[in-house]
Design a protein around this nucleic acid. Sequence first.
DNA 1: ACTTGTTCCATTTGATGACAGATTGAGCAT
DNA 2: ATGCTCAATCTGTCATCAAATGGAACAAGT
Lengths: 237, 237
Amino acid sequence: MTEEPAGARRRPLLRAGTTVDQMVRVLADEIVRGLLAPGEKLDEGGLAERFGVSRTPVREALRQLSTMDLAERQPNRRAVVRAITGERLAEMFDAMGELEAACARLSALRMTAAERRALEDLHRRSADPVRSGAREAYEEANVRFHTLLYEGSHSGYLRDLVMAIRARLAPFRRAQFKVPGRLARSLAEHDAIVAAILRGDGEGAAAAARAHVLTVGVASATYLDSTRSVEPPLEPA
Amino acid sequence: MTEEPAGARRRPLLRAGTTVDQMVRVLADEIVRGLLAPGEKLDEGGLAERFGVSRTPVREALRQLSTMDLAERQPNRRAVVRAITGERLAEMFDAMGELEAACARLSALRMTAAERRALEDLHRRSADPVRSGAREAYEEANVRFHTLLYEGSHSGYLRDLVMAIRARLAPFRRAQFKVPGRLARSLAEHDAIVAAILRGDGEGAAAAARAHVLTVGVASATYLDSTRSVEPPLEPA
DNA sequence: ACTTGTTCCATTTGATGACAGATTGAGCAT
DNA sequence: ATGCTCAATCTGTCATCAAATGGAACAAGT
């Protein structure tokens, strides 16, 4: 620690973790966003060259990805991006619905007054993007809304669990907003959840949240049927 | 495949996966069962020597363990067995309760007639071990009972999720059965769950299952308070 | 002729030992 | 007792070797 001229050159750009962690972040993001298609081969040598490292850290990254269920490995066979079957996708939405419902239920029971106010405020402000049809803005508000629900459960474990699944389903969820009129309906569903939470009705909040996610799941299934593929919709960086 | 004299010498004892997978299984088991105490250092060189391999596969195993939340790693610092704080344990029981409730709810809605019969049969047979005080036998029936619930949800994803948490909590859950009279109460709680499922009452089943897990969680918390430690109870191999 | 089965080799994975950088704890001076 | 120095130890990464895979080329059978 002799010199630190201002730019801190020791950290080579976005050094938030180790080399392997960085690779995992990048690859996980690309898989979740569909830039790496399901079934795509993850060649150790190729990835090593791409990231400018040797194969050792690449292997560690691949093992982590496979533990996270984003990649699949078999002994002596090359790793591939995990393909999501339609059935599995449905199961994931099932689980997502139940976990969202759990968070909503616990939020209704456990949220502090401040947390309830914040939720209500955010929900009220979300009406503007819907009126003006600002999809981007609403999507952002939507993410914040659900995050507040997870935090409201006052269970970090539950929050981490549901956010992991959410990240995995994000591309599929996002597609639904392109359906005409979906924004308004989404807002109405949020309204039911907020109302139940504010009156402390745990079961009501759970049912509303479950229905909300179910709707999203059905929309995704429809989308998939129409495209005859389980690949998540591509999108630009 | 030229010769196979009967003993199949090619597989060197329990070869169910790769070297790393085997190490992960062994270490995960030891951590979950408390043979490796929380906070215990996991030295790469030491483990390499113990398993008779080089450090590279050990590192992969450690990375997988840390992804599974069984170990903790920081850059350039040695890996340690993940310590479960009391708060985190409570959160895990929370999540477990919600997931069990979800499985029970879905079971009530989705179980086939055969599955309902199997659940009822098992539950009825579980009364014997309780009467005779056969703790071991009841514990086994208990595991099977819950597994049937998970399968009944008809969601493999949900099942995997809840079974992973269950494995992590197993040592804590098991301790509760040593409390006098707990077997009978556990059976009674199961009874409420079964009754709700058989009459197709999803919400009732969910509530009963949640209460059941909550009871277990409270019992564990009490146990922890009494021992002033968050280490899972040790038990012989 | 077209499929089916076999043999080989280029490619890829699994694992090892070695080297540079970071950490930790013992020893010493204050 | 407190803080500093430095060496032993451990982690992160690499280059390299043995074993396994999976196609291509080729032979044989229907």
